[in-house]
Amino acid sequence: MKSKSDDRVIELLLARGPLDRPALAELAGLSRPSTGELITRLINAGLVEEDGEIPTGRRGPNAMRYRLRRGCGSVVGLEIQPDHAEAVLADVDGTELERIRVKARQNERPATLVRRAVRAFRGADRLQAVVVATPGIVDRQGNVVFVSDHPHWAGPQGARLTEALGVPVVLENDTNLAGVAEHRYGAAADSDDFVLLRFTESLSAALVLDGRLVRGANGAAGEIGFHPYQRTAAEVIGQLTEAAIALCAVADPELVVLSGPQATAEVAEAVEEQVAATSLFRPRVVPSALPDGAAVRGALALALDRGRDRVYFDEEPER
């Protein structure tokens, strides 16, 4: 039975990587003897292992560093599109193990495509969580409600995959997961109130307010487009300006992040100027810091959260 102090040490090792006993004691607010007992308990539980000695430059034994033990479980983050799936397998400690790309078959259903991608990994043992980024609207139950031009994708794909893979599977809108990645690792890492405007085949948005992803009652928050964006630079800037103003009126973000093939610093600067010139809103507008693979990176981030809850904290995460 783990204690709150055990959980605190695990959280520190997740956030900071390998640490020695004095550092763990100081950061966790524990005595060194208590920290030593705690480390021994976590080693015996198979959650922590030694990471090597640190030379102290003094007489006596060197300090030992400790890290989370690899091999306790793995997770998968995927992005699926009608023509392919991109997937990343990682240890629950965050180490990326394998990355693959699978070509979709004609009219292949999402559940079949995901199942093939996961089973293509060589080392997907002790799988703890799978998170899938998909186009379209995904409701609270993980059902794909609507995908433009691909009606056969609709249905309870999450439940089907959970049953097929024998591990909890969560589906989430791809733009939402790109927003998660931007918040964790990208241009919005220092902002808890921002909008990601993603323009690829259509225009869509992810809303993060107070540090939390906003999905809406039916998973449709941010689905402002479902139509192709304009092609010339002036048309793109005009359309993005209109979308940014509309979203500012609803969410009042401090930051708008632009993501897509034309999301350059020059376009972001022009949109920021036009928003300020034609509305009362003054958000900063910047290009994405994650131009490639943001959705699969966001999927992996949520899969790690869910896998760690199961492995380290004995919790079954909610959707």
Rank of each mutant, 00 (worst) to 15 (best):
Lys2Arg: 15
Ser3Pro: 09
Ser5Lys: 15
Asp7Pro: 00
Arg8Asp: 11
Ile10Val: 15
Leu12Asp: 09
Leu12Thr: 11
Leu14Ile: 15
Gly17Val: 11
Gly17Leu: 10
Pro18Cys: 03
Pro22Phe: 03
Pro22Ile: 02
Ala25Ile: 09
Ala25Ser: 15
Leu27Tyr: 11
Gly29Ala: 05
Ser31Gln: 10
Arg32Pro: 08
Thr35Tyr: 07
Leu42His: 09
Leu42Lys: 09
Asp51Glu: 12
Ile54Gln: 11
Pro55Glu: 11
Ala63Pro: 02
Arg67His: 07
Leu68His: 05
Arg69Leu: 15
Gly71Asn: 02
Gly73Asn: 02
Val75Lys: 00
Glu79Gln: 12
Glu79Leu: 04
Glu79Ser: 09
Pro82Asp: 03
Asp83Ser: 12
His84Asn: 05
Val88Glu: 02
Val92Arg: 00
Arg99Leu: 01
Val102Trp: 06
Ala104Trp: 06
Arg105Ala: 11
Asn107Met: 13
Pro110Met: 07
Ala111Arg: 03
Ala111Asp: 13
Thr112Gln: 08
Val114Gln: 00
Val118Met: 03
Val118Tyr: 04
Arg119Cys: 02
Ala124Ser: 02
Asp125Gly: 07
Asp125His: 12
Leu127Ser: 01
Leu127Arg: 01
Gln128Pro: 02
Val130Ile: 10
Val132Leu: 08
Ala133Glu: 01
Ile137Phe: 00
Ile137Cys: 01
Val138Asp: 06
Gln141Ser: 14
Val144Ile: 15
Val145Glu: 06
Val147Met: 03
Val147Asn: 03
His152Tyr: 14
Trp153Asn: 05
Ala154Met: 05
Pro156Leu: 04
Gly158Val: 00
Ala159Phe: 04
Arg160Glu: 14
Glu163His: 12
Leu165Tyr: 06
Gly166Trp: 01
Val170Ala: 09
Thr175Arg: 02
Ala178Tyr: 04
Gly179Val: 09
Gly179Gln: 05
Val180Cys: 07
Glu182Met: 03
Glu182Leu: 06
Ala187Ser: 15
Ala188Gly: 11
Ala189Cys: 11
Ser191Pro: 02
Asp192Phe: 05
Asp193Cys: 06
Val195Tyr: 09
Leu197Glu: 02
Leu197Met: 08
Leu197Gln: 08
Phe199Gln: 13
Ser202Trp: 06
Ala205Gly: 01
Ala206Arg: 04
Val208Ser: 09
Asn218Arg: 12
Ala221Trp: 05
Glu223Pro: 00
Phe226Ile: 04
Pro228His: 11
Ala233Leu: 13
Glu235Gln: 15
Val236Ala: 01
Gly238Arg: 10
Gln239Thr: 14
Thr241Tyr: 07
Thr241Ala: 04
Glu242Gln: 12
Ala243Met: 04
Leu247Asn: 08
Cys248Ala: 13
Ala249Gly: 15
Val250Arg: 14
Ala251Glu: 11
Ala251Arg: 12
Asp252Gln: 08
Pro253Cys: 06
Glu254Ala: 14
Val256His: 04
Val257Ile: 10
Val257Ala: 04
Ser259Ala: 11
Gln262Gly: 00
Ala263Ser: 12
Thr264Asp: 08
Ala265Gly: 14
Glu266Ile: 09
Glu273Val: 10
Pro287Met: 09
Ser288Glu: 05
Ala289Asn: 07
Ala289Asp: 13
Gly293Asp: 12
Ala294Met: 10
Ala294Cys: 10
Val296Phe: 01
Val296Gln: 03
Arg297Asp: 08
Gly307His: 01
Gly307Pro: 03
Arg308Met: 02
Arg310Glu: 09
Asp314Asn: 14
Asp314Pro: 06
Glu318Pro: 02
Arg319Pro: 06
